[in-house]
């Protein structure tokens, strides 16, 4: 996860307390990425260990600031390709591929019914995201996060369409009609 780099990005704007970093991180990510304070301090400890942030004491409170190495690490991060963990719905891919495998073995319509059902499920999700988005008077960040979820669901739905089209084109399916 990119929490380290997120904290570095905030520290690049100026020194901050741990709790301040937590609240600013959450605001910047539209409230969808909650951090617990412990996680923030653990991450800061590691950043300090790696020489990317420095700590000073301000009237008994720890204040963190970015180091020169931290700035260059952050610079590299802005430019690097994002290495996301697979999104949770990659389960969708597994599900559909397994269903196709089974249908190919048995020559049944299982795969098609799985695709049809998953499409409906995804659309219901998309509808609820849309409703959340349209009633939201929330921040730009929150709206953009919802947009990201919407376009990812769209991508999944397009993939299901492709699966269905390809499945319709396979000889086993054509033999049916």
């Amino acid at each position: 996860m990119a929490v380290r780099e997120g904290l570095l990005a905030l520290l690049h704007e100026g020194p901050r307390h741990g709790y301040q970093l937590k609240t600013e991180f959450e605001a910047a990510t539209g409230g969808v990425w909650p951090l617990n304070v412990g996680q923030v301090y653990t991450t800061l400890d590691r950043l300090e260990r790696d020489g990317l942030v420095g700590v000073s004491d301000n009237e008994g409170q720890k204040v963190y600031s970015i180091t020169v190495d931290g700035v260059s690490a952050l610079g590299a991060w802005w430019e690097a390709a994002p290495v996301d963990e697979p999104p949770p719905r990659d389960e969708l891919m597994l599900k559909v591929l397994m269903a196709i495998e089974r249908s190919t073995e048995r020559g049944d319509a299982h795969a098609m019914s799985v695709i049809t059902h998953q499409r409906t499920v995804l659309h219901s999700m998309l509808q609820s995201k849309r409703r959340a988005r349209s009633v939201a008077t929330t921040s730009l960040a929150a709206r953009l996060v919802t947009d990201a979820l919407v376009v990812r669901a769209e991508a999944d739905l397009r993939w299901l369409d492709l699966c269905e089209a390809q499945l319709n084109g396979t000889p086993t399916r054509k033999a049916r009609s």
Partner: peptide, 26 residues
């Protein structure tokens, strides 16, 4: 377009001239 359909109360899916599924209406 799924994104446009998501504004609807209900989405109905068709294939080969029949309704194959639909989301629950809100």
């Amino acid at each position: 377009e799924p994104r446009f359909a998501s504004w609807a109360d209900r989405v109905v899916f068709m294939r080969d001239g029949v309704v194959v599924d639909q989301t629950a209406s809100t």
